[in-house]
Design a protein around this nucleic acid. Structure first.
Lengths: 260, 260
DNA sequence: TCTCCTCCTCCCGCTGAATGGAAGAGCCGT
DNA sequence: ACGGCTCTTCCATTCAGCGGGAGGAGGAGA
C-alpha cells in the first residue's frame, strides 16, 4: 500500500520493525533493525525516529534501539489477554503446586499457538515454551487443543499446509493429525508423548469462555508410564478456570482466525 | 506529517487509535474509535482494517474492535519492562507477604509514573494504582522517587509545569516539592502520608540497575503512626532487588526522558 | 409496515507525506 | 592515514493515504 517498489503500507513497515525484536535481540542498532526488517536504512531511520517520538520504541544513550515502555502500556491496558492471564494465574498456580510440573497457557494467534503464561518447575523436564513464545499448532499439546476447536477454515488450512516436525512422534501427516484432532475433541484433552522432545509429554485441555474455546492450559511432564495420571487434575483445573471465565466478563478473548 | 489538514503521520494516527482503548473500554465500535481518536470515520475504518490485518487490533463477531493479541506479543517478547517485572516479582512477593499491604512497582514513562506490577492485599486501604495505570510524578510516592532521580531537564520541566493535587497534603507547590525531592534523595525513600487519599500513606524506594534508578518500588499502608515502620523492610527489599538487577543483564531498562 | 436514525463500507479524484538513493559526517580498529 | 563500518540529512519524485459523500444494512419506534 505504499508508493515504494515493494508496495507496503507504513503500518506494515512499523510492524516489521517491531518484529525485528525478540527475546534474544532486545537491543538493536539502527542498521540491525534495518537489516532484520528488510527496509532501506534511511526509511528505517525515519520510522524509528517517528515511533520513538510516540514511545513505541526507545533509544538508549548509545542510540541503540529497543522496545518502548509505551508499547507495553498500550498492549497491557486493554488487551483481552490480560483478563485471561489474570484469571488463569491462580488456577495455574494451584495446578502447578499439586502436580509439580511446568504449567502453561496458550492461545490461538495466527496459525500458531502463542503462550501467554507459564509456571516452571525447578529441575523439571525440558520445556521449550516461553512467555510470548510460539509453537506450531500440530506439534504442541496446547496447539492440538486449539486446532481441534478452531474454525473449520483455519483447521483445514493448517491441515493442508506444511506440518512442522520435531521428533518422529510429532503428528506431521494430515490423516494422522485429523484423526487425533477428533480424538482430542472426543476425549477432552490432548496427550502428546515425545511430540516435541522425546523426554517430555505434553498434555493440554481446552479453556472455555461461555462455551467457546479461548485458550489451552497444559502441562509438561516426564515421558513415562505415569504421564496419563496428570490428565485428571489438569482437566479439573481447566473446568474450574472455564467456569471462572464464563458468564461474568463482558470482554471476549477472541480466537483470531484471520491469518497474516 | 501527513497530507491531512491537521498534518499527522500514519503512526501518530495508529497510536491515537490504540490510545482510544483503556481498562474501561476494551471493546469499541468503529465509530467509537473514530470519535475517541478524533479521526474521520473513513480514515478510522481504513486504519483499523490495516491494523487488524497485522493483528494489532482484532474484530469480534459483531465487528467490534479490540486490542489484538499480536500487540501484546510484540510488546512482551522484547520489552525491557518484562525483565524488570520478572526480576521484581519475587522480591515484591516476599515484601508483600511480610508487610501484608499493597506492593507496587512503577517506572518513569513520559512525565508520569507508570505502574507495571502490583500485588494487592485483601481488605487493604484504598489503592488507586492499577497495572498499566498512571499517576502524576509529584503526587505519588513512587513518582517522587522517580522524579528525584530523573534527568535535570525532565525534573525542571515537571517542577515548572502544572502540579496535580488530590488532597491538601499533595505536594503541589514548586518550592515544597523541590525541597521534598532533596529530602527523598538524602533519606533514600519517599514518604507520602495522605498525598493521594487521606486514609493511605505511600512509601517508595528507588530500584537501581548498575547504579541508575530504573524503577520505584512502593507500599500503600494505612495513614497512622505505624506507617514509618514499613520503610525499613521496603528499603531492604529495594536494595535486594537492585542487587539482583545489577551486573548481570545486558539490557538496560531506560528511564525515558523525552515527552510525547 | 414504514420511517428515521446510526452504523458501517466502499468509491474516487486530489495531493503532499513518505520514499530511498546518495552524499557526507563520525567512529573504530589496524 | 585508511578502509569499513555506523548513522543522519538532503531532496526530487510520485503514489498511498486521505476523507467527503453515496449507499446499504440493521435496529428502534410509531
Amino acid at each position: 500500500m505504499a508508493r515504494s517498489p515493494d508496495g507496503e503500507s507504513v503500518i506494515t513497515r512499523a510492524v516489521r520493525i517491531l518484529d525485528a525484536f525478540g527475546p534474544e535481540s532486545t537491543v538493536l542498532s539502527l542498521s540491525e533493525v534495518s537489516r532484520r526488517a528488510r527496509l532501506p536504512l534511511a526509511t528505517t531511520a525515519r520510522l524509528v525516529k517517528e515511533m520513538a517520538r510516540h514511545g513505541l520504541l526507545d533509544r538508549d544513550e548509545r542510540r541503540q534501539v529497543l522496545i518502548g515502555t509505551r508499547m507495553w502500556e498500550l498492549a497491557e491496558r486493554a488487551s483481552p489477554v490480560k483478563d485471561l492471564r489474570e484469571a488463569a494465574l491462580q488456577y495455574m498456580g494451584d495446578l502447578h503446586s499439586v502436580v509439580g510440573h511446568s504449567t502453561q497457557l496458550g492461545v490461538l494467534e495466527g496459525d500458531e499457538a502463542l503462550f501467554v503464561e507459564r509456571l516452571t518447575a525447578p529441575g523439571s523436564v525440558v520445556n521449550v515454551t516461553r512467555i510470548a513464545g510460539r509453537l506450531p499448532l500440530n506439534a504442541s499439546s496446547a496447539g492440538l487443543v486449539l486446532l481441534a476447536h478452531a474454525p473449520d477454515e483455519l483447521r483445514e488450512r493448517v491441515l493442508r499446509g506444511p506440518l512442522a516436525s520435531y521428533t518422529p512422534h510429532t503428528l506431521s501427516e494430515e490423516q494422522v493429525l485429523r484423526a487425533e484432532l477428533a480424538e482430542v475433541r472426543r476425549r477432552g484433552f490432548a496427550f502428546c508423548p515425545g511430540h516435541i522432545h522425546s523426554d517430555a509429554t505434553g498434555i493440554a485441555v481446552p479453556v472455555r469462555r461461555d462455551g467457546r474455546v479461548v485458550a489451552a492450559m497444559g502441562l509438561v511432564v516426564p515421558n513415562d508410564d505415569t504421564a496419563w495420571t496428570f490428565s485428571r487434575p489438569l482437566m479439573l483445573a481447566g473446568l474450574s478456570l472455564s467456569r471462572a471465565l464464563s458468564g461474568t466478563g463482558p470482554t471476549q478473548a477472541p480466537a483470531r482466525a484471520a491469518g497474516g
